[in-house]
Design a protein around this nucleic acid. Structure first.
Lengths: 132, 132
DNA sequence: GGCAATAGGGATAAATTTCTCCCTATTTGA
DNA sequence: TCAAATAGGGAGAAATTTATCCCTATTGCC
């Protein structure tokens, strides 16, 4: 496992939030768990762009940061269930605010993000295209 | 300059937000510009942990994403002023929500973040310690 | 038997982000 | 004359994050 070499910056609230939410898929993982997708395989279906390996890693970090709990059922084939902690649940309105802003400004955001990629033939497109 | 090789994921509002706000200092840069710290040197004083180089790069990205404008005064020594666009201003309530959550859960966050670093002598501490 | 689904980890590579060091230029002030 | 402040960029290294590939194990189903 990767071990950090530099102590994080913890000077203000935004720093602290960054430490627990700065991960490409974390907001969506929390969001989908809150929507009832508790098992890793369910989460992977909701977020097909994340590899299973990284999903596991980010779930473990969320657990270490006490935002989710991990419950193992001793059955076969294995079953694992993630749930938001009380602490994690306090994040839902925050994530909602963020996602809402993204939805409201969807068109403009797409435009400014994609202009960087116009006429760039070196881009590797994703193997499977999502259409949700 | 670094050129991306992989097309970004733009499946939902959270993806879009990530594309423009995913940068270690971006939220704080926007926040401090909104508070009136418009010049790069002022921003650097507000956020001493960011190197001047990276501050420049993230400011340029924010400008490309139309969240800030850059105004150059043709005087010497040079003077440059960044301002939020109308679009950028719509982000302030979002950033406020995020920062507020961080402030409210400050103690708990510090505790869960730092437990990973206990008894790890390999950590390189920052040269100058901030105490804000 | 062979295959899919389940959960997860090791090793390693690739992509991306951030940092460090060192330049350009001009003006003011000691 | 020399230092500091101003804004900014190139080159390259380091840190960090994410991805790919390939294992373990068990059960049920064809």
């Amino acid at each position: 496992m990767y071990e950090r070499k530099i102590l994080p910056y913890l000077n203000c609230g935004l720093d602290l939030v960054g430490e627990v939410l700065y991960g490409k898929w974390k907001l969506r993982i929390l969001w989908f768990i809150n929507e009832g997708n508790k098992r890793p395989s369910e989460l992977q279906r909701q977020i097909p762009d994340v590899s299973r390996r990284v999903l596991n890693i980010q779930l473990k970090e969320l657990e270490e940061h006490e935002l989710v709990t991990r419950k193992i059922y001793p059955i076969m084939p294995p079953k694992v269930e993630y749930n938001l902690t009380d602490f994690g649940r306090t994040l839902i309105p925050v994530i909602n605010t963020i996602g809402l802003w993204g939805d409201q400004h969807q068109e403009r955001l797409k435009q400014v993000i994609l202009k960087e990629f116009r006429d760039n033939p070196a881009i590797i497109d994703h193997p499977e295209v999502q259409t949700s």
